[in-house]
């Protein structure tokens, strides 16, 4: 089972295998890059060797997130632990949760708890920078919880509104 690392929402399968002392082969699904090695200097920096070329790397590891800066480009990579990612999310439950497509601020809330809503109904207006976006219900249900107040800010993927199934 390969390891999985997510970059910009895309999963990359990868695996290291030992090469010569301290260096590795990097196996991606469709290519092998070798040798690769990393020599760490200090807490947040090091020198990466990729197929004979060296790059100065600055990094911070924050849980499963790896923030990396190489040659003017910063990327956030997420190690996806198979024990978590392969554990199936309950499909039904997840579709009852309306998540924020981007970080932003709640402008107005169009519904109140207990209110029945149908698929496509406007639940909330959010604002991100100069854009207002209407958050709509993905299915029929009853508003169960509203997790932010007007004016409050939230992060991407935050659960904004929870619905419950009618008649439950």
């Amino acid at each position: 089972m390969y390891h999985s690392v997510e970059v910009d929402g895309v999963d990359h399968q990868l695996w290291l295998s030992p090469c010569q002392s301290g260096s590795y082969h990097l196996h991606l699904r469709d290519q092998v890059i070798s040798p690769v090695a990393f020599a760490q200097y200090g807490e947040n920096s090091g020198v990466l060797t990729v197929a004979g070329e060296t790059e100065r790397v600055r990094f911070v590891i924050e849980g499963d997130l790896i923030h990396v800066h190489i040659r003017g480009i910063m990327r956030v990579l997420r190690y996806r632990d198979p024990l978590r990612t392969l554990a199936c999310v309950n499909q039904e439950e997840s579709s009852l949760m309306t998540r924020a497509p981007m970080p932003g601020v709640v402008v107005t809330i169009a519904v109140s708890p207990g209110q029945p809503v149908s698929a496509g109904a406007a639940l909330m207006m959010i604002e991100s920078m100069k854009l207002e976006t209407i958050i709509r219900s993905s299915q029929d249900g009853v508003v169960d919880g509203i997790h932010f107040k007007e004016g409050e800010s939230f992060e991407r993927d935050a659960v904004l509104i929870t619905l419950s199934k009618e008649g439950r």
Binding site: H3, V5, V7, D8, V10, H12, L14, W15, L16, S17, P18, Y24, L26, L28, Q31, I33, V36, A37, F38, L48, V50, E55, V57, F59, I61, I66, V68, I70, R71, I73, R75, L77, Y79, D81
Partner: peptide, 26 residues
């Protein structure tokens, strides 16, 4: 989005304990 991706993936692999350990365990 592909710019320098291998170097980033290599960094992630080499900096992730689980990935490095599974290589060293073999």
């Amino acid at each position: 989005s592909a710019t320098g991706l291998p170097a980033f993936l290599a960094s992630a692999a080499l900096l992730t304990r689980q990935v490095r350990e599974s290589a060293d365990a073999v």
